Simulated scan of single mutants.
Amino acid sequence: MLGQSNGYSPETPQIWLCHQITRVPDSLPDWLTSFERDTLAKLEGPRRGEYLSSRWLIRQGLSNISGEPAEQCQPVDGRPVASQFPAGWHLSLSHTQGLNAVVIGPTPLGIDVEPSQRKPDWQGVAKRWFSPVEQEWLLRANDPYNFLKVWTLKEAWLKATRRGIAGNLQTLEVRKDFELYGDQPDRRWHSCCCSVEGFLATLVYQTNNPDREASWPAVTLLEPPPEDYNLAAAEPLETIWEPLYHRTIRAKR
């Protein structure tokens, strides 16, 4: 797919991406909140540029989805899981190796991005943290890319359900062919995964309308932040992305 996905619905989350810049200007942008300034002051090295780029991207996304001026948009303090203004939007942030991603929508959601070529000691991780069912098909397939898809899915699930990794990685079971089972039987959840810009991006989101067919989110790569991080509307860049799967997460049984 080229650029944004077609057939976008307001009920479907939207994903924005941007490559980070490492420079942090001596004069910080006026749009930073006091909390964000205090947080930035505690960071060192590349993490400063990563943090500032991510907060710039959040405001670009909120402005795009709401129509409000980017200078007025901001996330809640702390972990950015919702919008302070305009109120009512859920959001999730992920960043890795020079890329930021933010997803925004009307319902709880989570996103995780990882480099497609990342090859950790995935067999050891799977044996320690994954269910016997997951271990069986992953180790038999012996494909690190499959592991990466499962790992980003679990990370996105935990963000969407507001839980940490400890003790919760098996609350979502990923079976062969990405048949998904979660521990949230009273809610309707979807997951989708795509490859974009050499990265794997996995999204989990809740839907308010169980009868509506799930659709792909819009995926937009924005030009990187300017060196002064001003919030003039960023131009979208031509982007080719490949959908990998879209699944409903069923009640665990």
Rank of each mutant, 00 (worst) to 15 (best):
S5R: 02
N6S: 12
T12C: 10
I15P: 00
T22M: 12
S34F: 10
E36M: 07
G49T: 02
W56F: 08
W56C: 02
I65D: 00
E68Y: 15
E68H: 15
P69V: 10
V76A: 07
G78M: 06
G78D: 04
G78F: 03
P80M: 07
V81Q: 04
A87S: 12
W89D: 02
L93K: 01
S94M: 11
L99R: 03
L99W: 03
I104A: 03
F130Q: 00
P132R: 06
L138Y: 00
L138R: 01
L139V: 03
R140I: 05
R140Q: 13
K149Y: 04
T152E: 09
L153Y: 04
K159D: 07
A160Y: 02
G164A: 10
G164I: 08
G164K: 10
A166W: 11
V174N: 04
K176V: 11
Q184G: 09
S191N: 11
V196E: 06
F199H: 03
L200T: 04
L200F: 09
T202A: 12
L203C: 09
Y205G: 04
P210G: 13
R212A: 15
A218E: 12
V219F: 06
T220S: 06
P225D: 07
E227C: 15
Y229F: 11
L231R: 14
A234L: 05
P236G: 12
E238T: 15
A251D: 11
K252D: 07
